[in-house]
Amino acid sequence: MDVIWPTIPDFLVGTRNTLFYCLASFPIALVLGMFLALMDGSRIVWLHGPARIFIEVVRGTPILAQIFIIYYGLGALLGLINPSWALLINVWTAGIGTLALNYAAYEAEVYRAGFLSVEQGQAEAALSLGLSPSQNFFHIQLPQAIPLMIPPFVNDFIYLLKDSAIVSVIAGSDLTSVLNSYVRTHASNPLPFFLLAIVLYLVMSLPVSYVAKRLERRLRAAL
């Protein structure tokens, strides 16, 4: 136990960095996911084609492979176009970018499910009452779809908290990287550090999952 005390500040910095990765990439994932869902639901094949391909590729490859491709590969590609653009790719941007792109694909499915859950009758009634398609979308469908989509979004945020550990393989500075460095140096007695890291992760994720369950219960009661 006394082994841990001097290392706690490092672990707290790691926790702060993990939260930073998650809070930075989740909004980007939500916005990108919305555009992706709109593209995917369109009848225009120029839109739903590339969107479908993106979603299938992102969901079919491991996030580990994606982060390596973006960190090592994209830097090289950007460097070909314009040498100063290669400086854009560092651990932070690669991590946040990979997490955002990966989760955008999953959020697109959530948006799609949310909009499909709003009854078709609502849209038909709106259009037959004379509302324009965009009025129908913004005033009828969207307000009814958003409460249905919030519990899956919160669940996805919990998954994001854990998937943020992936940046440790490209030497990011989140909680798992701190844990990794201490476990490598204290190989004879690593268990206290594991305990500390697990407690910190639970402190981050349990409140969110509690909120998610409460929201889900309220939503199910409302239905």
């Binding site: 550990a165 844990l179 639970l202 999952s209």
Partner: peptide, 8 residues
């Protein structure tokens, strides 16, 4: 298990 990363 669901609250901690697979990597950890």
């Amino acid at each position: 298990i669901r609250g901690t990363p697979l990597l950890v």
